[in-house]
């Protein structure tokens, strides 16, 4: 079973929910932090990292001694990675590559008529894996300056162990990194806060999940702040509210120190066990 934890708006409590949910299951659970731009789950889970892997995409390297400057690769590349300067009577030709724009599709090397393009790996991030007690932990970290998170997210998701209960901590927003993270989930929890910003972004996230056909429910964090419009929206749209977490200085403080709620306030362990039970019930519907 794969449960992803997402939200339109950032900072609503995704990591708070995903880490405590995963810790409450413990054995036979796996937490994947797919927010590879800003991964935070490790701060709370404190895993012992046992394995690291480099993730790279294949980018073109031109062998200019073979290149005939025909321009086929430039024509094939829709990402403008390759610029071919044809030879003239005064100077020899040149082929420039802008590797940071490359998506690694492989078209250029395949279509090169003289075999002048070799693909070489360019690292875009790393995956770190380990355990915190019985809980298996995996996250990706995008390298600084890299623009594309989805290829790294896809690699993180290849570590999914289908025999376990898998909790995915997704990035905020509604665009490609979020879709890549949630895709293939059996259920999605949307964490929100009852403010105009929270509701606006929740509505966007709901549209995404409907489009993706993934069943979902809502967790309202800081439930006593803001206004009642989020509750009204969920009721009107028939979206189940599976948990409400009050605004509480104690929770905020333990969050700030990197302590999961269920460790800082053990009475919450039952709430998260309840949450998992409710998710399972929802999935049967």
């Amino acid at each position: 079973m794969i449960i992803s934890v997402a939200s339109g708006k950032g900072g609503t409590g995704k990591t708070t929910v995903s880490t405590s949910l995963a810790l409450s299951i413990g054995k036979d659970a796996q937490i994947l932090d797919c927010d590879v731009e800003e991964p935070n789950a490790h701060i709370f889970i404190k895993p012992k990292i046992e394995k690291k892997e480099s993730v790279s995409i294949p980018v073109p390297k031109i062998d200019e001694s073979k290149c005939v400057f025909c321009g086929k690769c430039q024509e094939a590349c829709v990402y403008n990675v390759i610029a071919v300067i044809p030879a003239t009577s005064e100077r020899s030709g040149k082929t420039l590559t802008f590797q940071e724009l490359c998506h690694g599709c492989g078209a250029c090397s395949y279509l090169c008529p003289v075999g002048a393009i070799k693909e070489v790996p360019r690292e875009t991030g790393i995956i770190e894996m380990g355990y915190a007690g019985d809980l298996e932990f995996i996250h990706g970290r995008l390298n600084i300056g890299e623009a594309m998170a989805p290829p790294l997210i896809r690699e993180v998701k290849k570590k999914i162990d289908k025999n376990k209960t898998v909790i995915i901590d997704a990035p905020p927003g509604t665009s490609c990194p979020v879709i890549t993270s949630i895709q293939g989930s059996d259920y999605c929890l949307l964490v929100t806060e009852p403010t105009p910003f929270g509701l606006n972004d929740l509505v966007l996230a709901v549209e995404v999940l409907k489009e993706m056909n993934v069943p979902f429910g809502v967790v309202i964090n800081r439930a006593d702040l803001g206004d009642s419009k989020t509750e009204e929206y969920c009721e009107k749209e028939n979206i189940p509210i599976l948990m409400r977490v009050p605004f509480n200085k104690e929770i905020a403080q333990s969050y700030s120190k990197g302590i999961p709620i269920i460790e800082g306030m053990p009475e919450y362990k039952r709430s998260f066990e309840e949450l998992l039970k409710k998710i399972k019930e929802e999935m049967k519907k």
Binding site: G10, G11, D35, E37, E38, L142, I144, G145, E146, A147, M148, A149, P171, P172, G173, S175, P177
Partner: peptide, 10 residues
């Protein structure tokens, strides 16, 4: 701006 460090932020 947006959260994160990827393409929209850059």
């Amino acid at each position: 701006g947006s959260p994160g460090i990827g393409c929209p932020v850059i």
